[in-house]
Amino acid sequence: MLIKSADDQSAFIAQLEHTANGQGPEAKRAAEELRIRKAGLKGESESAYLIDFDFASGRNWAVLHDLRLERNGRVAQVDHVLINRMLEVYVLESKHFRDGLKITDDGEFLRWNGYKKTFEGMPSPLAQNDRHISVLRDVMADLDLPVRMGLTLSPSFVNMVLVAPSARVDRPKRFDTSRVIKADQLKAFIEKDLDSGALLRLAKVVSSETLEQLARQLAAQHVPMQRQAPTVAPPVASNKVASDPVEQIAGPACKACNAAKGEILHGRFGYYFKCDACETNTSIKFECAPGHAPRLRKEKLEFFRECAECGTSALFHRNTQ
């Protein structure tokens, strides 16, 4: 049964397209965001179609797409969730690899860059999904879980990564990649997975009504992302300063005098803030949810704080020279 479909992003995509047709750095950022967003949506929609085809019409599975959860300052953006009557939760991360994927014996994920003709490193989607499961586990622990003979039936979780059926995947010999599969193989994989330990699973079976009730409780925890595309600043007179058209957060401050006026420079150990008032150097470090890795991105005189896991980008500082 289909409990939740993906959120409609058509208005956000249209806004990005409008901004990308403009000029300046905002248009450039919008064009890049549009490219990434469309690729991601393509992979998610292809996987969603296959999942719905195989699992959404029956009463033994609950299907949820595009589930965003927040708990204790942590955020999980889960592409797809499948829950069966044994309370087994398959957490599915969709990845769109246009030019192929390579996984090393050490578990490192590399994607092929067709333009540069080389493999490039990328965050592990398995590790990313582990973080999603950590948040999902905490959220579901607070739901009204079924009880049998005085004992609460707790869900179990399965981490899986789905890639496009047409994608090439180079697999290692030592690292276990069995949970990285092509989306059209999901049904066969789950059927084989369920065949193992079938008798033990039967002791935990709940009714279809209980499954639906639990899945709807989970869907009610969804927190939609407030998406705001970059906008192109309108023309201004030469004697006025244009307002910043993108989201801006608190910028760097000197560790010695707390002054905020200065320049971001790059040195031996990365970017740092040089205070104009006392010339003290202050390292730049960002904090985010556990497991997230926010970074500083430079574009001419502007510096942006970006977090791939949160999907956020905000202006952090603008140098004067």
Rank of each mutant, 00 (worst) to 15 (best):
E44K: 00
R74P: 00
V75T: 09
A76Q: 02
K95N: 09
A76F: 02
R111D: 03
T118D: 13
L69R: 08
L50E: 09
D52C: 13
S94Y: 01
R68L: 15
D66C: 10
E32I: 05
E108W: 03
H80Q: 09
G58D: 11
T118V: 12
D54V: 00
A31N: 09
L87D: 05
S57W: 13
V78K: 02
L41D: 03
Q77D: 14
K102G: 04
L87W: 06
L64V: 03
N72V: 08
R98M: 11
S47E: 03
L64W: 05
A62P: 09
G73N: 05
L64C: 08
N72L: 06
V89F: 11
N113H: 13
T104E: 07
Y90P: 07
E46T: 06
K95G: 01
L50N: 03
K116N: 13
V81T: 13
E32W: 06
R111F: 08
Y115R: 12
K38A: 08
L67K: 05
F97G: 01
N113S: 15
A62S: 14
N113V: 12
D99G: 05
K38E: 12
I51M: 05
R59F: 11
D54M: 06
H96E: 07
A62F: 14
I83W: 01
L110H: 12
D99N: 15
K42N: 07
E33Q: 10
N60E: 11
F55M: 07
V89N: 10
S45K: 13
R74S: 12
K38V: 09
W112G: 02
I51S: 02
K116V: 10
N72D: 15
V63T: 11
A39Y: 00
A48N: 05
W61P: 10
G43A: 04
L50A: 07
R85V: 02
R111Q: 15
L92K: 11
Y115V: 15
